[in-house]
Deep mutational scan, measured.
Amino acid sequence: MDVCVRLALWLLWGLLLHQGQSLSHSHSEKATGTSSGANSEESTAAEFCRIDKPLCHSEDEKLSFEAVRNIHKLMDDDANGDVDVEESDEFLREDLNYHDPTVKHSTFHGEDKLISVEDLWKAWKSSEVYNWTVDEVVQWLITYVELPQYEETFRKLQLSGHAMPRLAVTNTTMTGTVLKMTDRSHRQKLQLKALDTVLFGPPLLTRHNHLKDFMLVVSIVIGVGGCWFAYIQNRYSKEHMKKMMKDLEGLHRAEQSLHDLQERLHKAQEEHRTVEVEKVHLEKKLRDEINLAKQEAQRLKELREGTENERSRQKYAEEELEQVREALRKAEKELESHSSWYAPEALQKWLQLTHEVEVQYYNIKKQNAEKQLLVAKEGAEKIKKKRNTLFGTFHVAHSSSLDDVDHKILTAKQALSEVTAALRERLHRWQQIEILCGFQIVNNPGIHSLVAALNIDPSWMGSTRPNPAHFIMTDDVDDMDEEIVSPLSMQSPSLQSSVRQRLTEPQHGLGS
């Protein structure tokens, strides 16, 4: 029994001894940790006062410096006190997940390849973020970090730009207890964004957000305005092209109309020559008939004078003969009235020469109109080809070629109108001259024959008349068809009918 009691006491004593040793060891460790923490804080404070003595007594600045020092320690893998190029590049790629850190790398180092804690602190103090207000930090939280649900907490804590380094380091107390961020992804996102802002300055999105919006609005307005302008120009170009094509079609119709007119003019001239020949034959025939009538009257007179026994018949025959003579005298007077005045042959040749010289100047004017028309046609064809290209319509709308071609078409039409008026006036004037003179002027042997017949020096006439060419005029020349008939041919039928009527009546009387 005593043995059992003793054994229990030994065990209890051993447990108490072991517990005492454990408590003693724990207290010694706590004392050691407290001592090392105090030494670390003293070291940080001493270093901060050495680097930035004016701010070393500010608790907030001291906390920010400690956060900057921890960031530098995080980047300094070899713990030599300086962050070199390789260490910063590795940190950007692995910790901040930048696949192309060239720009960030140059911004961080600049011309200094080794970055110490002092360099990093001075860079942070010179950053724009260091002077941010609470509102600017909240704006950064909303737009860049995209965590607007913590806006009220940031405003309540009055977190300005000075506190940004403390957000950039992993601090459970700061993010969990103070900021009350329960979501781990939110804490990590805030820490990475803050670290990027401390090292490289304010984000471009935050700094140029309004400018970007303004430029976007301006670009949209310019784009819409450009599209509207292109649409208006395209519609104007199509309308202008439609008008130009309509004018061009009018020129083609006028060309065909003048071609038909020239054919009718040539045909009328041929008919005029035929009528002139018929007139000469008719006059000769009338003279022959008059002579035959005179001979017949003389023969009847002689027969009736030789027959004294038939006085009654003779008297009747003499009366008939007197009627025939009276008819012959009237026919002769009618014929003489139409051919009583004949212009000198020299006057006819001079008038024919005048007509040919006028035709020369008319042909020159006509050729100029043809050239203008050809230029207008070529310009229209070029515009047609340009319209078939990809940007042809837009190019035509913004060039002056369309207006130039339109002006050329209008100029050609005006020139053709002048040529039309000149042709109309010339035909009418020479027709009236032919009526008054009674001989042909338009139809003549040609300028060379006339110059030779009148003994004129050929050098006075200049160049010879160009051959009539096919040219274009407007449709108002169609009503000239009825005026192209020679006035002499219009007189011939009346002359034929009057003479024939007077010759036929006596012959019928003789026949009876």
Rank of each mutant, 00 (worst) to 15 (best):
E87D: 12
L92M: 06
L92S: 10
M75L: 06
A67V: 02
S88F: 02
E86A: 02
E87K: 10
Y98V: 02
N80A: 10
F91M: 15
D77T: 06
D84C: 06
D95K: 05
G81Y: 15
E87R: 11
N97P: 10
E90G: 04
M75V: 04
E87G: 11
L74P: 03
D78A: 02
E90Y: 09
N97Y: 00
N97A: 02
N97F: 00
D78N: 02
D78L: 15
F65D: 12
D84W: 13
A79W: 08
V68Y: 10
F65I: 07
D89C: 04
A67D: 06
D78K: 14
S88A: 03
D89R: 06
S64C: 01
D84V: 10
E87Q: 14
A67C: 15
D78E: 07
F91V: 06
E90P: 08
V85C: 11
Y98N: 06
H72Q: 08
E90V: 00
I71D: 12
N80L: 11
L74T: 10
A79D: 01
D78C: 08
D77K: 09
N97K: 01
A79E: 09
D89S: 03
S64E: 02
L92R: 14
N80G: 10
D84N: 05
K73S: 06
E94S: 12
D78V: 06
I71R: 02
F91N: 15
F65E: 11
V68W: 08
G81T: 15
D76V: 10
M75N: 09
M75S: 05
F91I: 06
R69C: 03
D95H: 01
D77G: 05
L96A: 09
D95M: 06
N97C: 01
R93V: 12
E86W: 07
E66G: 03
R69G: 07
E94I: 08
H72V: 06
H72F: 02
S64A: 05
A79K: 12
A79L: 04
N80Y: 08
L92W: 09
H72S: 07
L63M: 01
F91Y: 09
E66T: 05
G81Q: 12
N97E: 00
V83P: 15
E94A: 05
V85F: 05
I71T: 01
E86N: 03
D82A: 14
L96S: 09
L74C: 04
L63K: 04
D82E: 12
A67M: 12
A79Y: 11
A79C: 03
K73A: 04
E66A: 01
M75K: 01
L92Q: 09
L63D: 05
M75F: 15
I71N: 03
G81P: 14
V85M: 15
I71Y: 14
S64K: 15
K73C: 03
I71H: 09
N80K: 04
E66H: 14
D95I: 01
L96V: 03
E90R: 04
K73Y: 09
F91G: 14
R69V: 07
Y98C: 04
F91W: 01
F65A: 13
R93D: 14
N70S: 04
S88P: 09
E86Q: 13
R93I: 11
M75E: 09
D84Y: 10
M75D: 10
Y98G: 05
R69P: 04
E90T: 01
R69I: 03
D84H: 11
E86M: 15
V85I: 14
I71M: 08
V83I: 07
E86G: 07
L63I: 00
D76Q: 12
H72E: 04
A67G: 05
M75Y: 09
E90A: 01
S64P: 13
Y98M: 00
